[in-house]
Design a protein around this nucleic acid. Structure first.
Length: 882
RNA sequence: GCCCUCGUGGCGGAAUUGGUAGACGCGACGGAUUCAAAAUCCGUUUCUUUCAACGGAGUGUCGGUUCGAGUCCGACCGAGGGCACCA
């Protein structure tokens, strides 16, 4: 776009006119930013202090990146926010831990290996080097001494050791489960990698396959993970709600329906329901296609076996597309209704009953459950309502919509007239008392399957022996290191084909055995990195003294897209680590902030091809191709920056053109941080202008101020104009501090603009005024220093201040300057503002009313009317009701 | 379908516990400077009544509570996000 054309870099090089009064040269970020970065490095000022430093601790962490090779604007926004907090807290006197590392295992490295023939490790470490350099050019206050990549054996060896601890603690399970299997790539796919029932990479139809997998028993913690959400008061309500829904607690009744005729060892069907109140509306029972009884029947019933196969083939996402058509198979069996043994209900196998939830079998009440109703209508089964709305009579009937609202029980024997809630309670109590059922709590949350048929992940430290079963690798043999000599020329997992790595001796019996060739889900790596950052103990996953000091993370920042998986896994992992002695806390993140995305307009040419912003020229009459200016460009919606739509801006280009500070400032201004921000040329230009304006402001005064001493003068002794400025400065300190505490960066930015405006309008005439101006300018610099740290150092230096702003103490607001002696109050007549009065701050109600009545405009409005009431809120408002 | 969030100028957004709506920025317009431009500086900018006002209207729509509502309550409309056969 035009920014790149009329870049400030070019403007800067233009010869300047000679007769400017204040000849202040432009601020040149490219010249100074790297110098200040070196100065910080030399001073080593961002290294966390020891545990015994005596300062309170503050742990700020941004979600670490996947080393894709280049940072994007989303990273800039995320890390700029974290950096502001880190620098702000450091200035406030905290011992700050602000580390950075790499979430370095994962599929893109293998894809690169397949496409380019580069080894995943080479590709990954090259990317890390490139991205580290980019992050450093942003001037972020990371303690780089703690950097690690999760693909370093020095990291994943501890992950393996902890897995063995979890194994011993009973937190790990190995069992068969149904997975999405890509028959071409020979690998398991995650649900989100299956698109329209096909593998996202190979395009092959995904199969449902039963595989033996490793699981972490996160469901053991369901209740706790749910309950503890209430204590996470510094998390967004939205994230807590999403997690609560995901965990999905429900209360209900578990009971048995006796089979009219037993089938082998099956004499009854165990069901779970949250609506026992609708038992009298029962119409049929339904089994999951994977229910043990279904499997038993399918052995002899080939038609049922075909039905099962069809359900499996419909797979994961196809049901979504079909709109979830209900399909069933009549087994011909009957069960007895638990409240009336003579009442027989048919038993179906139904595709919408999941084996993984409850007991895999249900009783269906079509009148009050939409799925059951759809099924009943399709297979012509009875629909008997038992709950009617309070205003309906006993003829209440169901058409095509199940009634799920509250109301009054009817058609329900002894329970008629009760509310559904009361009926629910009574029926459960009755079943429990008679020993025919139990009150049961169920969760939607399943155990976490962590096996991946992948090379570029942490090897699972287990050896499979034909005689001894799954044997943990002895701790002395850790880490199990990934072999480097692997080939990606054929599909599937190279570990599975690696003869010398795979085949080994059983640690128990010494016989021939094979290694587990699956690797961990990469979410495992990111589930404990926050703890590792607190202390890099070479011999243990965590340094307990360090974790006890630093944990929990005081402020965690990242994208909302991790609201469930990563954040739930990490919360589980912290508990598992607590139980196995690696951590003293249960909650990893005391404070969570989820920032919005960075968006940009989209552009397409006449053929519909996406265009990069830099290929497009915006003019008054529309957008045109830069190379061929007569070609019109269609401007599309404002969407998240993505490579596929080409609506991206490269941080490197921005930094080269405008410097890191301008990019950071723009990312923090205007939009509230939790909301999406739109990257625009005008916005960057605005940020750039402010950088230059501040630089000019400082430098027009610098020469006259360097020798001025900023001695403290009591506000009472100041002349009016000086006092006004002094007040503005201290109000700014107060407000910016409050805004930064609340992570309201956009508001802090607005207040800084305001302060800069006020300072610009002040012309000192004597040394006393110069002293006030100087301290005001120094304050301004300190207030924006967390956001534009390089510019701040340059200004700090220009004003002749000592040391680095980065290590200076945060300014303190003079409380006495925040209180005004007099205050302007609006005067309303009947709620409409009619006038303003200036009253002493200390004035009481009566005095204020008197002053208000005396105000000419007020008199005019009150003239000839009777005052019914006068509301006076000191410091706020006066309102006459006439 | 269910759950959640949000609707404020031309735009991004401010507005403490209900108390002067539109801070700050962007854009636009006018002016200064300049041979001219860029850059910079000054001013105007919610809408509206032919100008103006210490005239009227105004925070998605309609209603309510209150001396007073962007803020609280109810209904509706619209946008965005999450979940989706969880019995």
């Amino acid at each position: 776009m035009r920014a790149i054309l009329k870049s400030p870099a070019k403007a800067r090089n233009r010869p300047r006119r000679k007769h400017r009064r204040h000849l202040v040269s432009r601020y040149d970020p490219s010249a100074s930013e790297s110098d200040w970065q070196s100065a910080w490095e030399t001073a080593d000022c961002f290294k966390a202090l020891g545990l015994d430093c005596g300062k309170p601790k503050y742990y700020v962490l941004e979600m670490f990146p996947y080393p894709s090779g280049r940072i994007h604007m989303g990273h800039v926004r995320n890390y700029a926010m974290g950096d502001v907090i880190a620098r702000f807290k450091m200035a406030q006197g905290y011992n700050v831990l602000h580390p950075m590392g790499w979430d370095a295992f994962g599929m893109p490295a293998e894809n690169a290996a397949i496409e380019k023939g580069t080894h995943p490790a080479t590709w990954t470490y090259e990317n890390i080097d490139a991205m580290r350099a980019q992050l450093k050019s942003l001037g972020l206050s990371f303690d780089w001494s703690r950097e690690f990549a999760t693909c370093d054996p020095s990291y994943y060896r501890h992950e393996q050791a902890m897995f063995l601890d979890f194994l011993e603690a009973g937190l790990v399970d190995r069992r068969e489960s149904i997975v999405n299997w890509d028959p071409v790539d020979h690998t398991v796919l995650a649900n989100e990698q299956v698109i329209d029932g096909k593998g996202w990479r190979s395009g092959a139809v995904v199969e449902q396959r039963a595989l033996t997998q490793w699981f972490l028993k996160i469901s053991d913690f369901s209740d706790e993970l749910l309950g503890a959400l209430d204590g996470l008061t510094r998390w967004p309500e939205k994230v807590r709600l999403m997690q609560a829904n995901w965990i999905g607690r429900s209360e209900g009744l578990a009971c048995k329906f006796e089979l009219a005729e037993p089938v082998g060892e099956f004499s009854n069907i165990q069901i779970y329901t949250t609506r026992p109140d609708t038992l009298y509306g029962a119409s049929f029972c339904a089994l999951s296609p994977d229910h043990p009884l279904t499997l038993k029947l399918a052995v002899t019933d080939t038609e049922l076996d075909d039905f099962r196969a069809m359900c499996a083939a419909r797979g994961t996402s196809e049901s979504d597309i079909e709109g979830g058509e209900k399909l069933g198979y009549d087994t011909g069996l009957f069960v007895r209704h638990p409240l009336d043994p003579d009442w027989l209900l048919p038993v179906y196998v139904a595709n919408f009953v999941l084996m993984g939830y409850g007991t895999g079998a249900i009783f269906a009440c079509p009148a009050h459950d939409q799925r059951d109703l759809d099924f009943a209508r399709k297979y012509d089964l009875p629909v008997r309502p038992v709950v009617r709305p309070a205003n309906a009579d006993s003829k209440f009937d169901i058409a095509d919509t199940a009634y799920t609202g509250d109301g009054i029980m009817f058609n329900s024997g002894d329970f008629n007239g009760l509310s559904p809630a009361a009926a629910r309670e009574q029926i459960i109590a009755q079943f429990v008392e008679q020993g025919r059922g139990t009150r049961q709590v169920n969760f939607r949350l399943r155990d976490w399957g962590i096996s991946r048929q992948r090379y570029w992940g942490c090897p699972i430290p287990v050896i499979h022996c034909p005689n001894c079963g799954a044997v943990p690798v002895p701790r002395a043999d850790l880490p199990v290191i990934l072999p480097e000599d692997v080939s990606f020329s054929t599909p599937g997992n190279p570990l599975d084909r690696h003869a010398t790595w795979k085949h080994t001796a059983c640690p128990k019996c010494g016989g021939e055995a094979v290694r587990e060739t699956d690797t961990f889900d990469t979410f495992v790596d990111s589930s404990w990195y926050y703890a590792r950052f607190t202390g890099l103990d070479p011999d243990a996953p965590t340094d307990r003294a360090a974790t006890d000091y630093w944990m929990s993370v005081d402020q965690y920042i990242g994208g909302i897209e991790h609201a469930i998986l990563h954040l739930l896994y990490a919360r589980f992992y912290a508990r598992a680590m607590h139980r196995t002695g690696h951590l003293g806390t249960d909650e990893p993140f005391a404070g969570l902030f989820t920032q919005g995305m960075v968006c940009h307009e989209t552009y397409r040419d006449a053929d519909g091809n996406w265009l990069l912003p830099e290929q497009v020229e915006r003019r008054e009459d529309g957008a045109f191709l830069k190379d061929t200016p007569d070609q019109r460009v269609e401007i599309g919606g404002i969407e998240k920056m993505s490579k596929s739509k080409k609506n991206v801006v490269d941080p490197d280009d921005i930094i080269a053109t405008y410097g890191a500070d301008t990019a950071r400032w723009f990312m923090l201004s205007d939009s509230p941080p939790e909301r999406d921000v739109q990257w625009t040329q005008e916005g960057v230009d605005g940020a750039w202008r402010f950088v230059q304006r501040v630089w000019r402001l400082i430098n027009t005064h610098a020469e006259n101020l360097t020798n001025i001493k900023t001695v403290h003068v009591h506000p009472d002794e100041m002349p009016a104009p000086t006092l006004e400025l002094y007040r503005t400065v201290h109000r700014s300190i107060h407000e910016v501090t409050r805004d930064l505490e609340a992570l309201s960066f956009n508001r802090a930015v607005a207040r800084i603009y305001n302060l800069a405006n006020e300072l610009s309008g002040f012309s000192p005439t004597d040394d006393a005024e110069r002293a006030i101006l100087k301290s005001g300018l120094l304050t301004l610099v300190q207030l924006f220093a967390p956001m534009m740290p390089h510019l701040a150092e340059s200004c700090w230096h220009a004003l002749g201040a000592d040391g680095l702003v980065a290590t200076a103490d945060w300014p303190q607001a003079d409380a006495s300057a925040l209180v005004e002696d007099s205050v302007t109050l609006p005067v309303q007549i009947n709620g409409k503002r009619r006038a303003e009065i200036i009253v002493p701050k200390s004035a009481d109600r009566a005095t204020i009313e008197e002053i208000a009545r005396a105000e000419p405009k007020v008199e005019k409005f009150l003239d000839g009317k009777s005052i019914k009431k006068c509301v006076v809120v000191p410091g706020r408002i006066v309102n006459f009701v006439v």
